[in-house]
């Protein structure tokens, strides 16, 4: 079953022959990938395989050496106002939450809409409360990030990204920095989001989530995409030795 063929107008993000080096290290090799509207693509792979870098190139937190990245059919501009406008269309959730430490949860969520989208303050606040309600932390709105648990902070970070009404949400190992008992509350929010039709690219080590939620699974190793499959195909019948090896290691316990 191939999901690679899509109507071009329905493609939210497309990477064409993307190459990137960190010095000598070739971290992204000939990456070709497209994500369709409403699709949930999960990227898995061993540490250092380039999956986080892949995620970060899509809103140009990492520049690329060559190739093309199209978001909504439009090439990523270089630094400047246009790039900022494009980033506003792409929500990003980080491993370490990165909530603005000196602002309350509510201000974290309303800052983008007010300053970038020029949404009136009252409307931005109302929407923020709705989003905080949706991720289950409405009662934490007036607190500072440091006063929240890791799971609550990550849910706030998801609300902050959603407040921009993004076309696409990028998740860069969103649960890797969390205590085990807080992982599920974040994955639940992400599952709800996927079910609501949000286009998502998720880098994660959570195989259960990948199996349940992903439409498509990408396996990366040493900067290359080695497998593209449905979760079921991948977990039951991996094609490459690297993938078999990876699955053997993580599914042992």
């Amino acid at each position: 079953m191939s999901t690679e063929i899509q109507d071009a107008s329905d493609t939210v993000v497309e990477l064409i022959d993307v190459q990137k080096h960190f010095g000598e290290l070739h971290v992204l090799k000939d990456i070709n990938l497209s994500v369709a509207r409403g699709e949930v693509v999960v990227v898995i792979g061993p540490s250092g395989s380039g999956k986080s870098t892949l995620c970060r190139t899509i809103n140009r937190l990492e520049p690329i050496d060559s190739g093309q990245i199209l978001v909504g059919g439009q090439a990523l501009p270089a630094e400047g106002k246009q790039l900022a406008m494009l980033r506003a269309e792409v929500g990003m959730v980080f491993q370490s939450f990165n909530l603005f430490a000196h602002k309350t949860i509510l201000d974290n969520v309303t800052l983008g809409p007010i300053k970038v989208r020029k949404t009136p303050t009252e409307q931005a606040r109302a929407e923020a409360f709705e989003l905080l309600d949706r991720v289950g932390i409405r009662n934490q709105a007036d607190k500072l990030p440091a006063q929240l648990s890791g799971g609550q902070q990550q849910r706030a970070a998801i609300a902050r990204a959603l407040a921009m009404h993004p076309k696409l949400m990028l998740f860069d190992e969103p649960t890797s920095a969390l205590d085990p008992e807080m992982i599920n509350e974040v994955l639940d929010v992400m599952t709800d989001l996927a079910q609501s039709g949000m286009t998502m690219l998720v880098v994660t080590h959570e195989m259960g989530f990948a199996r349940r939620v992903a439409n498509r699974l990408i396996f990366m190793s040493d900067g290359e995409i080695l497998e593209r499959a449905t979760p079921n195909e991948f977990f039951t019948n991996p094609q490459t030795d690297r993938a078999k090896d990876f699955l053997a290691k993580i599914l042992q316990h």
Binding site: N59, L61, M92, F94, S96, H102, K115, A161
Partner: peptide, 30 residues
């Protein structure tokens, strides 16, 4: 100020000047 603060500011579409003025410098002053 951790690098992630500026990255998060850029990720929601703030320009360099906005993220410096609203996110990085206020924390740097403190």
């Amino acid at each position: 100020v951790p690098l992630g603060q500026a990255e998060a500011a850029r990720a929601i579409g703030l320009t360099f000047m906005q993220s410096a003025r609203m996110i990085v410098l206020p924390q740097a002053f403190r």
